[in-house]
């Protein structure tokens, strides 16, 4: 289990990296934490003539909190984000999701941007980005673009990042007022990719009525799924059980050796209900 040969590049600026990607086209691939890419290279499931390592580019590894958002640089390690007070305060849903990723050794190297750019539908962070309406900044030959999360995830391992483009940072909007967040997932073992999971946020008014709701599902299709109908229903006064049933109603999850499609669909409703209950409880505190 050894990777095919490749040429290694360690650009020190985004411009240089973009130049390399442009020059080598489909033969080049970005390497961030390597926690998804390197296993695939080792298994020879994929290979590239050029690997463009982002780890030596200054400026992609910072977390900045402003009034409305937390901006996480693409190569911020998942472990660093997990420990960040700015993330804890400004993007608590992200903070809740991170410990579910693999094991601490994986998070020490894996990056926030890598997880989102990799767009595994069973991953936590893409669902968090989707639920929070994050915006993603990419830089490419034509300059910088901002992509909304709901236009970013196209299919399994496929995103709106274009040829020659690199994900630079992700802006997670902060929620104000009385709110609560939760991530619930069912995985075979601790650290496994989820069979089904939900990342949710709720905002309550003075009377503890749900006035804001965001639900991102993962592990239930070819992309993370936003449960808009369930969100509308919940803010319109539906029970969490009803909202959860709605969230699962339209999904069409895959079946595999770990769980049938029906199982995933059933359990999606369970994790949404449990996550909503936990988030509301937190918001009520």
């Amino acid at each position: 289990m050894k990777p095919r040969a490749f040429q290694y590049h360690a650009p020190e600026s985004v411009g240089e990296a973009v130049g390399l990607l442009e020059a080598h086209g489909d033969d080049a691939k970005v390497l961030a934490g390597g926690q998804s890419l390197v296993p695939m290279l080792n298994l020879r499931l994929t290979s590239f003539e050029h690997l463009v390592d982002l780890n030596r580019i200054a400026g992609l590894g910072t977390i900045e909190r402003s009034s409305g958002t937390v901006r996480v640089g693409a190569v911020v390690r998942q472990a660093a984000a997990e420990r960040s007070p700015d993330v804890a305060v400004g993007a608590p849903l992200l903070a809740r999701a991170l410990p579910h990723i693999g094991h601490f050794q994986i998070r020490n190297r894996g990056t926030v941007g890598g997880s989102i750019a990799h767009a595994d539908p069973a991953s936590e962070l893409p669902a968090v980005a989707l639920a929070l309406d994050a915006t993603l900044e990419v830089s490419g030959p034509a300059g910088v673009r901002i992509i909304a999360a709901d236009e970013f995830f196209l299919s399994t391992w496929e995103t709106a990042i274009g040829d020659g483009e690199i994900l630079i940072s992700v802006d997670f909007p902060s929620w104000g007022g009385r709110c609560g967040f939760a991530v619930e997932e069912i995985a075979r073992r601790h650290g496994d990719f989820a069979l089904a999971g939900a990342a949710v946020g709720v905002g309550l008014d003075e009377d503890l009525r749900v006035v804001r709701c965001a639900i991102g599902l993962f592990g239930v299709g070819s992309t993370p799924v936003r449960a808009h109908d369930a969100e509308v229903a919940l803010t319109g006064g539906a029970s969490i059980g009803e909202a959860a049933a709605l969230a699962a109603a339209d999904i069409d999850p895959p079946g595999d050796v770990h769980a049938t499609a029906m199982y995933r669909k059933e359990v999606a409703a369970v994790v949404v209900r449990r996550a909503l209950a936990a988030a509301i409880e937190e918001a009520c505190l």
Partner: peptide, 19 residues
Amino acid sequence: CTVLLDGQAVRSCLLFAIQ
């Protein structure tokens, strides 16, 4: 294969030495 890289525990099978 876990080793410490700059003090942090990481998988050495998922790193290229050249990095």
